[in-house]
Design a protein around this nucleic acid. Structure first.
Lengths: 219, 219
DNA sequence: AGAAGTATGTTGCAAAAACAACAGAACTAG
DNA sequence: CTAGTTCTGTTGTTTTTGCAACATACTTCT
């Protein structure tokens, strides 16, 4: 666990908690690391939720598959990001979504029950964590609202342009990498891959943008 | 302000706060009521955010209009519901969305700055409110995730069916009212009104459902 | 009650997207 | 290095949606 301490100390969830206290706190929250191979499920929809997860290394997707086998990527989790917290704090029993490892992942799990109930003796960390959680959840809401903005566009081109120009603003550069391959981007924007591919090439031919694999440049 | 105390005391934001303390607390948060007529803007996108709002009476929509005049209804606010809290707690300066009164509304505003900074002397209410806020934000996240599930469906019919069967589950009855008229439902699901109307009638003709105005019955 | 305004349904047409099927490039593992 | 697998782009067809325009029913206001 020690080798993760530095990364965890930087995590927004543990803001205002002294590095020296981290070790104690993690024990208190029954923290444990688990490794997931590429394409394996970290959470499965329908499963009882008893942990909050933090991506320590690797990349994962929060996804929802429907009855007809269509997958929607709700969000992309990178190093340091949390998942499961919304369900825990909204008192949901079973998970409505799944989390899949896109590549080999190390996940830190925190016992949700211990997060929810204060320690026997008044625990300062607990208060700090709740405070941090408010900010994290608020940012997630914004992220979702942002994503909503992409996918409510009626045309594929508009979804793409909205998504890509958001990336441009985010990284403050006309040139950037996106965390998706074509199929994943299509799943994220909920459009059909080949139709999206068509539209991307059309935009390239019109000189609106350039791309190579997952690297894009807007003009 | 007094006549609102009872309603506010029941609000999830003030859970675990004694009724007798409410009056003091509201003063502490610079609470004030404002009335908005039908179709007027309560928040406008781009505006500096300095308050959290609570719908005391009436109905409002959180919306986003794009450059081309297309409106998306992000969510429907009824009596007792909060708005603006995500932006406040994520430290956003200006609002990315607008809030519009669908009918005459009374809105209670709470000073966001006073919510964010603890009172001079350690304030128990503040801690309680933060705790409650975690739950509220978590539930909002779930709501958004739920909505995402509707609009990521590729076909209008699937969006409608997902939306309507969710209502069915929510009210535990095959018969229910929705809080939207046709144009609003179309804006909520981000489809075109007439295409949606067409699809609804087709489904009615196929015997899948019945409707009259905003009252629906699934078969 | 009557007029004006609003909400809903209807139609035809044009545009866009989904779907399916395939080909070549790039990557991976033995 | 090679065979197999995955990723990306391409094409043609079918289905669905958006859009515009209009008819009818329903509301609201005076």
């Amino acid at each position: 666990m020690k080798k993760y301490l530095e990364l965890l100390a930087k995590n927004p969830l543990f803001r205002n908690i002294k590095n020296t206290e981290m070790s104690f706190l993690l024990k208190c929250l029954s923290a444990r690391i688990e490794v997931f191979e590429k394409n394996s499920y970290i959470f499965t929809a329908g499963e009882i939720i008893s942990n909050i997860g933090i991506v320590v290394s690797g990349k994962a997707h929060i996804i929802k598959d429907d009855h007809w086998g269509n997958r929607t990527i709700l969000s992309n989790l990178i190093r340091g990001e949390l998942f499961g917290e919304a369900f825990i704090f909204a008192d949901l029993e079973v998970s409505p979504i799944s989390v899949v490892a896109v590549e080999r992942c190390e996940i830190l799990f925190l016992d949700s029950h211990k997060l929810l109930t204060t320690c026997p003796k008044p625990c300062l960390y607990h208060t700090a964590i709740i405070s941090n959680m408010v900010k994290i959840l608020a940012q997630k809401t914004l992220q979702l609202t942002q994503k909503m903005h992409f996918i409510t566009q009626k045309k594929t081109r508009d979804k793409l342009l909205n998504y890509l120009s958001y990336q441009e603003v985010r990284v403050k550069s006309k040139s950037f990498n996106i965390p998706f391959n074509r199929q994943e981007l299509a799943d994220y924007l909920s459009v059909e891959r080949s139709a999206m591919s068509k539209e991307l090439c059309k935009m390239r031919d019109e000189g609106i943008l350039e791309f190579n694999k997952s690297h894009f440049t807007l003009k």
